[in-house]
């Protein structure tokens, strides 16, 4: 028998770590969906398929800008020493994923603005007519549009990868200590982005195309999720305990029902039937994917904080 008592009761630290609440999962979700949107819209710009997929190329960059800003507001709300936030941009720490992320977020904005410039939303061009001139200049050079597509894909991929690396670099939390977490978050970002475009695109062709893409992303996400769990279950006892939090522990209901069941498998089945023209497209499936993606971030962030190295000490 091993009994450990501790006189420390620091708020948000003991008994279980709870330093990150709703703001961080929301930020990671919004960062992920923006990353997915940028990769998808960048790909279509690069391929010159702007006429086929107008929503992806012209509307999505503006939506991404709003989502990214909302995500950054959530991140800002989480900071405890808000007045000092500018300190992030006075240095670059090569070993700190958060420092990388802060600078990547700064890179995303100009790329999104360039993306928006390809076709200016009407309310903006009415207020700022000079933007139309810029837009005309960019569109007169197809290479420039392609390069914006490439920049969008690269910066989107960096953002999506960063959201996973941010957590996996924190080795003190066994659940996050996996090298597959960034792939999982990147694929989840792509699947939620594809689901969002599927949901709002007016063109049936585009909606159908994105549903097909979403099926691929969801299938890959499911595979990576399984690999993520296998990686933990074949590691040390603390990692096995961390995996058990999701498999049969306190986070299992949310994980199995909302992330795996309603977030991946059921919408995948619905969308496979829809793209095979067995049933009509329904907004239910993409909504389930988006909500599932959000709950995935909540489950990973909350369960990760509960997972702890001290479990190993108890098991000695």
């Amino acid at each position: 028998m091993n009994e450990i008592t501790n006189t420390r009761m620091n708020p948000s630290i003991d008994q279980f770590l709870s330093i990150w609440n709703w703001e961080i999962p929301v930020y990671l979700f919004l960062g992920g969906i923006v990353a997915g949107m940028m990769i998808i819209s960048g790909y279509f710009l690069f391929k010159g398929r702007t006429k086929d997929v107008e929503c992806s190329c012209y509307k999505i960059p503006f939506v991404s800008l709003i989502f990214l800003t909302a995500g950054m507001i959530a991140l800002f709300l989480d900071l405890e020493h808000k007045a000092y936030v500018w300190r992030v941009y006075t240095t670059f720490k090569i070993k700190s994923p958060m420092s990388w992320g802060s600078w990547i977020l700064l890179l995303i904005y100009p790329v999104l603005f360039l993306n928006i410039l390809i076709r200016i939303p009407k309310f903006l061009s009415n207020k700022f007519p000079f933007l139309e001139d810029l837009s005309t200049k960019i569109n007169s050079h197809p290479v420039a549009v392609r390069n914006i597509g490439i920049a969008s894909m690269i910066s989107g991929a960096l953002l999506g990868i960063y959201t996973g690396v941010l957590l996996s670099s924190l080795g003190a939390r066994p659940l996050w200590n996996s090298s597959t977490l960034w792939i999982l978050f990147l694929l989840s970002g792509l699947s939620t982005a594809a689901a969002f475009i599927h949901l709002i695109a007016k063109s049936r062709y585009e909606s159908h195309l994105l549903a097909k893409a979403d099926n691929v992303f969801l299938s890959l996400e499911l595979i990576v999720l399984i690999l993520f769990l296998i990686g933990l279950l074949t590691s040390t006892q603390v990692h096995i305990d961390a995996a058990k939090l999701l498999l049969n522990g306190s986070y299992a209901p949310a994980f199995w029902v909302f992330v795996v069941g309603l977030g991946i498998i059921i919408p995948l089945i619905i969308q496979i039937m829809a793209v095979s023209n067995k049933i009509p497209h329904t907004p239910i499936a993409p909504i389930m994917v988006i909500v599932g993606g959000l709950i995935l971030r909540f489950v990973i962030v909350y369960a990760g904080q509960v997972s702890h190295w001290f479990n190993a000490q108890l098991l000695k």
């Binding site: 990150w20 900071l79 405890e80 808000k82 000092y84 936030v85 992030v88 924190l170 080795g171 939390r173």
Partner: peptide, 12 residues
């Protein structure tokens, strides 16, 4: 310190 709490999460 900006209070991002990454250091707290990283401390075993």
């Amino acid at each position: 310190c900006i209070g991002c709490k990454a250091c707290i999460a990283s401390c075993p």
